[in-house]
Amino acid sequence: MLQASNIHFCIQQRPIVNTAEISIAPGKLTTIIGPNGAGKSTLLKILAGDIVCQQGVISYNGQDLKNLKARDLAKIRAVMPQHSQLSFPFQVREVVELGMIALGDRADQSIVQEVMEETQTWQFRDKLYSQLSGGEKQRVQLSRVLAQIWGESSNPRYLLLDEPTSSLDIAHQHQVLHIASRLKHKNIGILAVLHDLNMAAAYSDQVIMLKNGRIYQSGSVEETLTSEKLHHVYDYPIQVFDHQGYHGKHIQSLPLHQNSAIVKTA
């Protein structure tokens, strides 16, 4: 279990994340949603150990984050950043192999191939990373992160994804989230920051709604993703429909001028 209790983080007296309580269970996909500036990325960074929170306790499998060395932490949690620029001409394959630094001196080539096939990046393996498109780079980074936790382990592990689908086309967005859902069976708990509410509705086991650094609501898709709550969190009218044909939700928002038209007629 990845647990955070009463965590708090300020930048210049302004709380960015305020007294949040979170627990991420292995085998579950949890998403964080919320408007810009709600503190989603900061929350993820605090949980990853990038920034030290000023209050509260974070523990991985019962061990306090503060007492974990970088190398030991890397064996139980992987993080995919929003953007990654490489400063030197590395090959794509080398980038993916980097993910396995914490696991030993030599990268297991069968895992490298497996994760790269999974993310459909195996065909770029000998290219230079800098020659790839934005979406391809993002998938290569995902492969690197997957390589870090792909191998078998007896301990529960965690994968933190910061907007993993931001530069991807619709097919690859589904593919990435599909990979994430399948990872659940490897005893891995996944926490993803997502902007696309339909993606969140389709893939989440648990949703955390964040607003102004506070958790407004957390729970199942049914409990959280309702028109009323989404309207409150985003300050924008959002409609939620039950999907025709399959068990799920369809979330829709109208263009701004149509919204005001509705308000005027009403």
Binding site: K45, D50, A74, P81, L98, A102
Partner: peptide, 9 residues
Amino acid sequence: SEAFHMGIN
């Protein structure tokens, strides 16, 4: 931060 995530001090 990525280097830290991968286990580098």
